[in-house]
């Protein structure tokens, strides 16, 4: 039997890796991938507690999270395409058009 704590630790590790990746990487596309990692970690938590409590609600909410993640990926990649058209780069350090 896999305890819920095991899954929580896996989820925490995925979340931390996602946050660290968002902080260190300068590539917009990689940063978006790290957001997907974080959302996957959230889904793991939903599923683990759904099993722990014997309640289906967690799985239903994980469906919603997956939907929002897909919408976020579409919007984020659309922003990348528009950004490349404007600045010819995906380096976040060179995106400072709104800086004073």
């Amino acid at each position: 039997m896999i305890s819920t704590a095991h899954v929580l630790v896996l989820s925490l590790a995925l979340f931390t890796l996602g946050v660290v990746g968002m902080a260190v990487r300068r590539n917009f596309i990689t940063v978006l991938m790290c957001v997907e990692l974080i959302l996957n970690a959230a889904n793991l938590n939903f599923i683990a507690f759904s099993r722990q409590l014997g309640d289906l609600t967690g799985q239903v909410f994980a469906v919603f999270v997956i939907t929002i993640a897909a919408a976020e990926a579409a919007i984020g990649l659309g922003i990348i395409v528009a950004l490349v058209r404007l600045k010819q780069t995906v380096n976040l350090d060179q995106v400072n058009v709104m800086e004073g």
Binding site: T4, Q52, G54
Partner: peptide, 13 residues
């Protein structure tokens, strides 16, 4: 907080 008790048997899922 989560390690209190075994997971439910999954029949409810």
């Amino acid at each position: 907080a989560a390690s209190g008790g075994l997971p439910a048997d999954g029949a409810a899922l």
